[in-house]
Design a protein around this nucleic acid. Structure first.
Lengths: 146, 146
DNA sequence: CTTACTGTTATTATAAATATTACAGTTCAA
DNA sequence: TTGAACTGTAATATTTATAATAACAGTAAG
């Protein structure tokens, strides 16, 4: 089974939330409350997005996270690359390289190639979805409610 | 993080192994040894592939599993649909439907849609890869070794 | 100097994946 | 007609991965 890492979700959610807020700023505690997780987890994910320049941070009182990119430009593929690249591949591998069997000793490699290609197809889709699009979808979902 | 279910790998490995064997037949014990897992796990996965007609089984002494499809026809997309459809979506969800916030209460739904679309892009790739192609890749990987 | 933050690591708890055991049911063949 | 070799399936245990929590050093504002 595949299982998309939830850090990807946290990263997207955080960026969307920052884009949504008028001042484009929030603390890890505020974001964590919205995401429904622990502030330390938010800080961990956002510290990756800081390294890539997607958010800026300010420590100390009155500090927090600020969106440092254009939500109309940044794609989910970018976010995925930061948080979860390679995660499509299962940790469990079938076969055994030491075996003296064509299949058993090469299956891990071959499946690895297939997973990589599958992931790259997924990325071409994620490259079409921008942070601003996600916000738009959220608004549409909200408007559609009774 | 995404995490492709390893039952998909076990299913592919089993089908390839059956296709490779001259009589296209093997027991769960033989397959498990090649895959490196427990025979009961192989039986569980293959009982799904039996329902879809990809393998035939015979219980009792001298029984086992037989390939019941053409490896040049069956695609990995088909196998994925049998074993792992929906598995790309993380079990963990961000946000909370009960919240009175545009983002928090709709994020799960919106991400769900994005994951579904991502999975379907992956499936269009997997639909291009046949069981026979995997066997071919295994032969190529083997030939490339010193 | 105190309060409110980030950054980071370590630890614990929880959930999910995998392995194992067990046994009923089936078939073959001696 | 009995025993050996299988599948099918569920229950349980074990291992591994994920997420939550705690803790604290460092930084900046007031």
């Amino acid at each position: 089974m595949i299982r998309l890492n939830s850090e990807f979700t946290i990263a997207v959610h955080s960026l969307v939330l920052l884009a949504y807020r008028p001042d484009r700023t929030a603390t890890s505690e505020m974001i964590a409350a919205n995401v429904c997780t622990h502030p330390a987890r938010v800080r961990k994910v956002l510290s990756c997005l800081k390294k890539t320049g997607h958010v800026a941070t300010r420590e100390g009182s009155g500090g927090g996270y600020t969106l440092a990119c254009d939500p109309h430009e940044v794609t989910l593929a970018e976010v995925y690359r930061v948080t979860s690249i390679g995660s499509i591949k299962p940790s469990w591998c079938s076969g055994d390289v030491e075996e003296d069997c064509l299949i058993a000793c090469n299956m891990a490699d071959v499946m690895d190639g297939i997973f990589s290609e599958a992931e790259s197809r997924m990325l071409t889709y994620l490259a079409q979805v921008k942070i601003a699009d996600v916000l738009e979808r959220l608004r549409a979902a909200h408007a559609a409610k009774p």
